[in-house]
Nucleic acid binder design. Sequence first.
DNA 1: GGCTATTATCGTAAATCGACGATGAACGAT
DNA 2: ATCGTTCATCGTCGATTTACGATAATAGCC
Lengths: 105, 105
Amino acid sequence: MMTDDRVAAMAKALGHPTRIAILKLLADRPCLCGDIVAELPIAQSTVSQHLKVLKESGWITGDVDGPRICYGLNREAVGELRFVLEQLLGQWESAPHGSTCSSCT
Amino acid sequence: MMTDDRVAAMAKALGHPTRIAILKLLADRPCLCGDIVAELPIAQSTVSQHLKVLKESGWITGDVDGPRICYGLNREAVGELRFVLEQLLGQWESAPHGSTCSSCT
DNA sequence: GGCTATTATCGTAAATCGACGATGAACGAT
DNA sequence: ATCGTTCATCGTCGATTTACGATAATAGCC
């Protein structure tokens, strides 16, 4: 089970359009930092920062290859987050249906 | 299809442990603001702010009932976000396997 | 009209984020 | 050893977030 803090960290990292774009690129194929810089209209330093955020939150892996670093999507982590969402949805099924808040009619 | 901005907005809203706790409560049952304040160790104004963020990003609904507002999980939105994650995972299946970055061996 | 209960909003201060250019670090090639 | 390439880190700026208490707004009840 992922802790709330861990889920929050992953979600926070996902919470930026540029990082979503990066993840989509990495879902298609592994990329070097430079590949991503070439695809997106932002500075190299900014891409590097986003990659750092994604790596620290567990979204991506980074395999060193000489001076380059080949980034790839960490599908395991994606699957874990998906499971968290499924749990949110599923909690309803097993709960006593019709339960309400303290005052709802 | 959800836009990147929309996904980012939802993810950003999820990116806080307190809001995850609130969503878990709402996944169990609809709640008034006061119900949530009673469960969490933070001020009423802070809870209200978090609820606003969750509502604006589409995570929850708020049904007015007199002076109270009954909040509930928007399961449709949760499902949409789950679908986005599934797309990230699934993109691999249909891609030419073994495709790599510009220089990976 | 007043009173209570419930929730939203305001104002503020500390912390974090996102972007950039400039610089540093690591590695292969000459 | 010195390049050139590739990526990370530093320092900085304005903007945003998060938390709080205090205060306003809304709806029902007397």
